Amino acid sequence: MRTTTVGDVTLLLPDLDPEDLDQVSDLSDGDVRDGLVDGVSWRGEQLAEQSIRGCRITGADLGEVSWEAGALYGCEIAGTDLSGATFTGISIERCSVTGTRFTGTRFIDVRLKDVLFDSCRFDYATLNRVSVAGSVAFTNCTLGHGSWSSCRLSGVALRSCDLSDLELESCRLDGADLRGSRLHHLRTPLDNLHGVVLGEDQLSDLTRLAVETLRIVVQAEV
């Protein structure tokens, strides 16, 4: 395992050696462990109560996968398509995810711990009742036009992300680090931003959001 730091968040992540992994091409009914999953297509597969552990997944097509009540643990995922997938009641822990597409993906009752999402696309993704149980960071991710509801994301790092037209409803983000992220057109009641950390350069976006949310009329003096 290795550690990395994003802002004030320190994450414990896997450090896999491809030479120690066995090539995996087929998705069996059992758990997948210590596998090298390169360029496979498991599009539309149905997974229930399965675990994927200690695997490196690169260039794979996992679009429209449906995964319920399982675990993703100690994995590295890079350049993979997970668009249109549905994750329900799974745990994602000690994982590094880079350059991966989650367009239109749905996360329902998902638990995150020590997970780094770097340069990923979550546009039009839905997060419902997602919670963090440890360090979690999103860096350089596109989160636009998504919908997050009833999520518990205290202390999460959302650094240098595009939050344009992201809709937040009944979310808890206290202590979340949003420095460097674009807040323009973020759609949320102000109480969802209670206790977040911003940079001085983001105050104009926050002011604009407050004016729009409170329907304040700004007029020139006569």
Rank of each mutant, 00 (worst) to 15 (best):
L198T: 05
G74K: 03
H185R: 14
S181E: 06
E169I: 07
V97N: 11
S160M: 00
G134I: 06
P14Q: 06
L168T: 15
Q23F: 06
S119Q: 05
Q202W: 00
D201W: 00
L158P: 03
I92L: 12
T213E: 15
S66D: 02
R2P: 03
R56I: 03
E221D: 14
S204W: 10
T207Y: 02
L203Y: 06
S154Q: 11
S25K: 14
D20L: 07
I52V: 13
L206E: 02
S28R: 08
S25M: 09
E76Y: 09
V97S: 12
D162H: 06
R208T: 13
V65P: 10
S131D: 11
L47H: 13
S91K: 06
D162M: 07
T98I: 14
S51N: 13
R121A: 05
V37E: 03
R179L: 05
E64T: 11
G30N: 05
E45R: 11
D29L: 13
F138P: 15
S150C: 09
R208S: 08
T98Y: 10
V6F: 11
R172C: 11
D165A: 01
A71I: 08
L11I: 02
C171I: 11
R182N: 15
V132K: 12
M1G: 11
S160T: 07
A85N: 05
G146L: 09
N192V: 04
E68V: 14
I92Y: 10
G89P: 10
S154T: 12
G63V: 07
V24T: 04
G54A: 04
P18A: 00
D191Y: 14
E212G: 00
D177K: 12
L72Y: 08
L21E: 04
V110E: 15
Q23S: 15
L112C: 08
D191W: 07
C141W: 02
D29V: 02
S25H: 13
V6S: 13
G175I: 07
T105H: 06
R106T: 09
T58P: 01
V222Q: 02
L82D: 01
T98S: 12
F107T: 02
T80M: 00
L209D: 05
P14C: 09
G180C: 08
E167H: 12
F102A: 07
R53E: 14
D109P: 04
A48Q: 12
G63Q: 03
I57D: 09
Y124F: 15
A220W: 00
T10L: 01
I77V: 15
V197F: 11
G195P: 01
G104D: 05
A210Q: 12
S83R: 14
A71K: 10
L112F: 01
V115M: 01
S164N: 04
L193A: 01
C75P: 13
R208H: 12
G63K: 02
C171M: 04
D191L: 10
T103H: 08
R106N: 07
L112I: 00
V9L: 03
D165I: 02
F87G: 05
